[in-house]
Design a protein around this nucleic acid. Structure first.
Length: 399
DNA sequence: CCATCTTAGTCCCCCACAAGAACCC
DNA sequence: CGGGGTTCTTGTGGGGGACTAAGAT
């Protein structure tokens, strides 16, 4: 990947769009993501200033540099003298924020040459869905990270996808937004590193927009069946990124989520559910009960074409797991972790990645709805009125 | 150890047609 | 420049054939 904007190929890229897997300059970011309502939902974050190819997730205060997880690890690993550097989590945003708004999101963000207010900016205020209700409290609420922080149980990789961002926003708002302080003028923000203490299911339900999320139940058996090699499985699934409750099984189009049923309806952390979900068969049966209260744990799944580095660093949780500290394990001493361990984990992850399937993404729900009810002959669509051997609506044959 | 066969798993094409995109007037 | 009409393209899911890998003989 070069060091120029993926769109114009001219300017130096500043932000990274995960949905597009593209590094963009601010101008192109605004142009590209003002195209339509969907593109406005793309979550973007700063580009790593070290590798210039991965999304930054943390900013080193001392070095004044934004870093992706890999570069952060390289620069602030436990074995380095910089491991005590104070770092701040970098929030994601969506919509088309102005430079000033970006500065409010990222206090360290230097205001680039004015690009003028886009039409997107103006339209943003008109959007009816709950896209602009992110709290302005993100800025001051910087999630400081230090190497001492070992309690990483759940992180929120809401920067990953559009849907996730909306979900992350929901939960994050619940946790962090002072009541009545919604600012509809700001772009949607999400926080990459947020814990969810004391979150009630009802709270989640209230703010969870079902239309925004779908569930792609891929390799759930691995998630539920994880017994020994938890970290590897989480690597496989990209890491448990965030969790949200829901009352119905949605059907939309995010490709980065793994659903995990939990017994009962209480919301729990990942480490709390993993022993209860060790039976793939029961998981399967639970999957069929789509209307039951189910916990959905969203996890980052890398898209085809993403670099291996980005694959595991896309999710805070997974990367933390790579660092040898799964949340359900007692904190390890610093010396217990070696680069060999990490390398080994990465190798295992890459190995499994080769065998992974990437499920289809439904782009048009209406077409899917039609296909779902069309009559078929040996799986093929047949003309209306022709004989068929399979009718999704009624398992009968016409001949 | 190699060749052959069996089994299991995965991938990809096919179909009709509505929706959406592109084009023209 | 916008609206209406026409034409072209896209995408949707289940079944089955082709293909590959692993294991057995």
């Amino acid at each position: 990947m070069g060091y120029n904007c993926d769109f114009c190929g001219d300017q130096r890229p500043v932000v990274y769009c995960r949905s597009d897997a593209a590094c963009l300059c601010l101008s192109c970011d605004r142009n590209v993501h003002s195209a339509n309502a969907l593109s406005k939902r793309h979550s973007r974050t700063l580009l790593c200033e070290r590798c210039n190819s991965q999304p930054a997730f943390v900013r080193c205060v001392e070095e004044r540099v934004s870093l992706c997880q890999n570069c952060d690890w390289m620069g602030h690993g436990t074995s380095t003298s910089n491991s005590r550097h104070k770092r701040q989590a970098i929030n994601c945003y969506s919509g088309c924020p102005s430079s000033a708004e970006l500065s409010s999101i990222w206090p360290f963000f230097q205001q680039p040459p004015s690009a003028g207010e886009s039409s997107c900016e103006r339209e943003l205020g008109l959007m009816s869905i709950n896209e602009n209700i992110a709290s302005t409290s993100w800025g001051p609420m910087e999630n400081n990270i230090s190497q001492d922080n070992t309690g990483i149980a759940i992180t929120n990789d809401t920067c990953n996808s559009d849907k996730e961002s909306s979900m992350g926003e929901s939960s994050a708002r619940l946790l962090d937004q002072p009541s009545g302080s919604k600012d509809t003028s700001l772009p949607k923000l999400c926080c990459p590193q947020t814990k969810y203490p004391g979150l009630s299911e009802d709270d989640l339900y209230d703010d969870f927009n079902m239309d925004e999320v779908d569930l792609n139940l891929e390799k759930y058996e691995e998630l539920f069946g994880m017994t020994l090699n938890h970290s590897e499985e989480l690597l496989e699934n990209g890491g448990i990124a965030s969790l949200f409750g829901t009352k119905d099984m949605p059907a939309a189009d995010s490709d980065c989520q793994v659903a995990a049923p939990a017994e009962g309806s209480s919301v729990g952390l990942v480490n709390a559910i993993q022993p209860a979900c060790s039976n793939a068969a029961s998981a399967d049966s639970m999957m069929s009960n789509k209307t039951d209260s189910i916990l959905y744990f969203t996890a980052r799944r890398p898209h085809p074409g993403e670099s291996s580095a980005g694959d595991y660093q896309d999710c805070g949780a997974s990367s933390m797991l790579l660092m040898g500290e799964p949340p359900w394990c007692p904190p390890c001493t610093e010396t217990s972790f070696t680069s060999a361990t990490r390398t080994d984990a990465v190798m295992r992850y890459k190995e499994k990645k080769k065998t992974r399937m990437f499920e289809k993404r439904v782009r048009y729900a209406s077409r899917k709805a039609r296909a779902d009810v069309r009559k078929r002959v040996k799986g093929r669509f047949v003309k209306a009125g022709d004989a068929y051997d399979y009718d999704p609506l009624s398992p009968t044959r016409s001949f």
